[in-house]
Computed example of a mutant assay.
Amino acid sequence: MNAGTGKTALITGASSGIGQELAKLFAQDGYNLVLVGRSDDKLDRLGDVFKNNYGTQEITVIGKDLSEEDAAQDVYNQVKAKDITVDVLVNDAGVGLYGLFATDTDWEREKAMIHLNVLALTQMTKLFLYDMLSRNEGKILNLASLLSITPTPLMAVYAGTKAYVYNFTQSLVNELKDTNVTVTALLPNATDTDFFHKAGAENTKVTDEVQDPVMVAKDGYNALMAGKPKVIPGGFKNKSYEVMSYVAPQEALSALMRDKMSQKPDPNEEEHSNGLAWGIGIGIAVVAGIALGYAYMNTNDFTRARYRYKAKSLGDTISDALSSVVDNVVDSVVSAYNTTKDKASDLTHKADVVKEEVMEEEVVS
């Protein structure tokens, strides 16, 4: 029997990208589904695929543009009218917009984006969270972004909406800590979906390092089921952005992200540009480390204790990112130690033999 049999997951933005991959994972685990999106036809076809491939028992499709006023309330009302209990809420729906805020972007599109990314997500969470708390059971996954923890020129409003989502989610984590309801923030890097095309950012440098939405969804799904407060899919490179966001000057981070969000250069310039971006990143980390060390050595005992606490928290944050590296280093060190120890023992034995021979010759002489 699948783990989710008899339970229902509601996924917004389920017709494509990360939302579709998340819906597939719920279907594979035997969940009934409520699929919310702007295209009824896409969602109907997706529902047929889930029924045929995974034997999903109940699939409810709600065609709704969540950027419209009170759209979240209407979705909730439809769910209640059908007497559906939502055990898991996935707030995946979201859009972006690329360009200089002052001169390039359109206010009406920005207003709709804020409504979708912030207001609809908040209202959906409020409505369904209340019911979850009344049962003292439930899970919520909110799609944030790595951009939620860094300033991002050329996508300033989008990054601001995701910063809200991340902060909002982490605040709820604390409010819900004594309940059986959990909320998780998913912070993916650039992902291979239609997002950049819709945002008008399809020719930006960051699109050269997009990640697989299947991987992103799987990491988010596993973190949600485990009740983790957040997850950054991918490897060490992605997690390094979080580390830099804690210690680096905001001006330096802005410069780094401005470079990543800029238009792709000519092929002859691209290699130098990528190297420069990572050079800036590494330089930020080094300079920030030196600055923190200097500040620590030149402060009072109370402030030092605060630095130690923050350093421990930072260590906990990056421990997952470094674990595999540390394991490899430790294995190498242990192997080298054992090899060196064996060689040293062998040399010691040979030295003892030589010493005995010399002593015997001295006695004879």
Score class of each variant (00 low, 15 high):
V363S: 15
H349W: 14
R135D: 00
Y31I: 00
A255T: 07
A71T: 05
T105D: 08
S67K: 02
D320E: 15
V325Q: 14
N189I: 14
A156Y: 02
S332N: 15
I290S: 08
V231K: 07
I282F: 10
K230M: 11
V61F: 06
V247N: 04
A223V: 09
M359K: 14
P229F: 08
L322T: 13
M297Y: 13
D65I: 14
H115M: 10
E271H: 14
S254L: 05
A144T: 05
V363W: 15
D320I: 12
K239S: 00
D259I: 10
L127F: 00
G63T: 01
T207Y: 05
D41L: 12
L347W: 12
E242I: 11
S171P: 10
D29N: 13
L10S: 03
R306G: 05
S39Q: 10
G99L: 02
M257W: 06
H197V: 13
L25F: 08
K126T: 12
M215S: 14
V173N: 09
V118R: 08
I59G: 05
G96I: 02
L43K: 00
L146T: 07
H349G: 12
V165M: 03
Q170D: 06
P233V: 04
L292Q: 06
F26I: 03
E270H: 11
L46F: 13
A120S: 14
Y296D: 07
K162Q: 07
G96T: 04
N274M: 13
Q170V: 06
E271L: 11
N180R: 11
N180E: 12
Y54H: 08
E356V: 07
V206W: 07
L322K: 08
D40I: 11
E68W: 00
K177A: 15
K343T: 06
F128C: 02
N174G: 14
V353G: 02
A190K: 02
W107A: 14
D320M: 11
E242G: 07
M297I: 02
T179G: 03
L143E: 03
A71V: 01
S254Y: 04
L147P: 01
V333M: 07
D48V: 12
L176V: 05
K82L: 14
N117Q: 06
D327F: 15
E21S: 09
A226I: 08
A255D: 10
T169K: 00
A295C: 09
E357M: 11
G283L: 03
L176Y: 02
N167M: 07
V49S: 15
Y98F: 10
N52M: 13
T5C: 05
M132P: 04
I149H: 11
M359E: 15
Q78H: 04
A14S: 10
N32F: 06
Y337M: 15
M132V: 05
A199M: 07
K355A: 12
L172N: 08
G281C: 03
L154K: 04
K51I: 08
V86T: 00
T85V: 05
K82P: 01
V79E: 01
L141C: 04
A3M: 13
D92S: 12
A156N: 05
K228H: 06
V330L: 10
L35E: 04
V325H: 15
S254V: 01
L314I: 04
L143Y: 01
N167W: 09
A255G: 10
L253E: 06
M257R: 09
D194S: 15
M113R: 03
